[in-house]
Design a protein around this nucleic acid. Sequence first.
DNA 1: CTAATAATGTAATATACATTACATTATTAG
DNA 2: CTAATAATGTAATGTATATTACATTATTAG
Lengths: 200, 200
Amino acid sequence: MSSAGRPRTFDRDVALNKAMLIFWEKGYEGTTMTDIISAIGTKAPSVYAAFGNKDKLFNEVVNLYAETLKAGPLKALNDHPSIYDAIRSSLYSNVDIFTSQNNPCSCLIMTAAINCSPEHIEHMNRLKNLRSGYKRVLEERFKQAVSDGQLISTANPQTLAEFYMTFVHGLALRAKDGVSKSELQTSTDYALVTVKLMLK
Amino acid sequence: MSSAGRPRTFDRDVALNKAMLIFWEKGYEGTTMTDIISAIGTKAPSVYAAFGNKDKLFNEVVNLYAETLKAGPLKALNDHPSIYDAIRSSLYSNVDIFTSQNNPCSCLIMTAAINCSPEHIEHMNRLKNLRSGYKRVLEERFKQAVSDGQLISTANPQTLAEFYMTFVHGLALRAKDGVSKSELQTSTDYALVTVKLMLK
DNA sequence: CTAATAATGTAATATACATTACATTATTAG
DNA sequence: CTAATAATGTAATGTATATTACATTATTAG
């Protein structure tokens, strides 16, 4: 069902995935179009024809990466009726992603645009918004647990969400530093104490 | 006691401090020499004469920043006989620095060289080594607390140090996202539960 | 005062990088 | 087969950025 014109010599989805892995490892500004072009195994005009430019490509990459989080840590939050199990499973899912051998260590949304030159603030803001969204989901989950009666009435969904956000950000940086999966899991077990103490 | 030659029109220490604030905010690669040159209020050759090049300037800046941490969070660790007070004071000191109005939010050592192009890996490694040093100090402090008999015998200095390292990294990123001092303090109080539970 | 010294200002240089111009080639619609 | 379409390869282009060349100026040592 392809339309007229010379066919692409590479698979667009595969190429997008390769681009994602590079941005994931090197961040937005640390990645050059040359990196991506040679990873795909083609030439500049082909990549520009397929993806527009670096900004648009990065936006697509972020969408793709966001699916990873939706399918992992975010889904985990609502897959367990028990708030403790939900938080535990979600944190472990983060650890799994951040230390998987199939992709670069750490989290694209947390590390790909930390220090951008002014002309790329759009990407910092985009990722920041995604982080805010993640926090909102966490907070809602804690709110639900309070209204479920799983947590003591003084438990504060907002500050709990902020605490676990902080912890997950820390996991991302430690993974980037090469800390192993089992070490991150041990840290996670320590962090889980906080919510455990608020269980009824 | 100055030697022959035309005198500098700016104070080298003041200039170094200005450079530090810029690198602190924008990171190594996000900062341009032009940023620094115009902040100092001089011209390129003067800055190069005073500091060598961008790499050397950054190295000096990192040394200067490291003093901030030595005088704050690291000193706090050994200023309190109680391990709980030491950790609490150290974490609060981090929060103070990361959210001070006198400097950019977050931590230069944790955020200034997260995604560097290959030709600047030296700086990533340098900062990574400083982080390792910080962890080592934390770990030694926990070891001491165990031998002091302040912590239960099963307390693990290594995993406790890794946990608090993770948390402090998280604080740095959350501060960069604009989370307020009081919110970070609340998260810190949650994190302190972990060590509190290991007190004898 | 003179020479040596070292910073300054102007203006280049060199390089990396994102992006595009243009001619060419491979495909589909009719 | 022909025209329309769209990707390809080669080779530019433009811009940002780190760094330096060079002539000039301000200072100190003797």
